[in-house]
């Protein structure tokens, strides 16, 4: 039974990484850069959620949706202020990367000024008691995380496979010059990709906030783990990001229980290093190790 409990926990933690990793991968495939502030949007949305639900007493579901949307808006502004000014530099990978690292530091300090250094608590909609599912004891929040992530992935799949806008975003990622010749506003597509990616990160932050505390640095660790998940998944496919995220979540949950609880956070990076050495293309993707 313990194995199943751990598996549920691993899948829930992994879902969080998967959502954030999706953000990394969508931006990377669209504009060929890694947004190192991706994890911070989890933090941004979690703070919005605390303000809306705890301070302003908005209904939980409404606060949830508004916070995710605000994370997307924040991502839109982020690409406007951080990505756009440096994107046309020659060999723009490094300038953009450094700009996003700067953006990450900026966001963390902005929220430190706004909310102060004391960790905040976002209550779960559910009780903190585990529920008994045929002998398996799991936290309802974990089930919520898994279900919401699954629904989100299904929605994304519908969006990218069934809508013209989704196809235009893919076309832009595959060949931006030709996309422009077709009349696709590629700048808008890229802005939308950023907004979607940060909204996904925000969703992850709100889902995981009741499990941890809401702090200005909560996004860093989530971001790093999700980055590892993206590498494992190959950094180029939605499928890879999801499987990479779930794999990291499961590995660290089991490793933290059976090998060493103190080194729980180290497992993701051990996996990352092993992949960079032995399988730099990840499970499904192209080689990115030269870039990072």
């Amino acid at each position: 039974m313990q194995v199943i409990q751990l598996l549920v926990t691993g899948l829930a933690v992994g879902s969080i990484y998967a959502l954030v990793a999706l953000g990394f991968v969508l931006v990377y495939t669209a504009v060929n850069v890694v947004n190192f502030a991706q994890g911070d949007f989890s933090m941004v949305a979690a703070f919005f959620m605390v303000s809306l639900v705890v301070s302003a007493h908005l209904p939980y579901a409404l606060g949830f949706v508004v916070s995710v949307i605000l994370a997307g808006v924040a991502g839109y502004l982020f690409q406007l202020g951080v990505y756009q000014p440096v994107k046309n530099r020659p060999r723009n990978f490094l300038p953009v990367m450094i700009a996003t690292v700067g953006g990450s530091i900026f966001l963390q300090h902005l929220f430190l000024i706004l909310y102060g250094p004391v960790p905040l608590q976002l209550p779960s909609v559910f009780s903190q008691q585990t529920v008994d599912l045929g002998g398996v004891h799991v936290y309802p929040q974990y089930l919520l995380i898994i279900v919401v992530t699954a629904v989100m992935v299904a929605l994304l799949n519908w969006f990218f496979e069934r809508t013209k806008l989704g196809k235009q975003m893919q076309a832009t990622a595959q060949d931006p010059t030709t996309a422009r010749l077709m009349g696709i506003n590629t700048a808008r597509m890229n802005a939308l990709t950023f907004a979607l990616s940060t909204a996904l990160g925000g969703l992850a932050g709100i889902l995981v906030a009741p499990v941890y505390m809401v702090t200005t640095t909560m996004g860093s660790l989530i971001g790093l783990k999700a980055f590892a998940a993206s590498i494992v998944g190959g950094f180029s496919s939605v499928k890879g990001a999801i499987i990479g995220g779930l794999a990291i979540g499961i590995i660290e949950t089991f490793g933290g229980t059976y090998i060493s609880g103190a080194y729980r956070d180290a497992f993701a990076f051990i996996v990352l290093v092993l992949f960079l050495i032995f399988r730099p293309y990840g499970l499904f993707g192209e080689k990115v190790s030269q870039k990072v």
Binding site: K164, K167, A171, Q174, M182, G183
Partner: peptide, 27 residues
């Protein structure tokens, strides 16, 4: 004014039908 570029530049990851639909992005 529609420019069909050198080297065809088909979107590799989209189907033929989707490639055609992308052609209507100008309106």
């Amino acid at each position: 004014i529609v420019h069909v570029p050198e080297g065809r530049r088909i979107f590799p990851g989209l189907t033929v039908k989707e490639n055609l639909i992308m052609g209507t992005s100008n309106r």
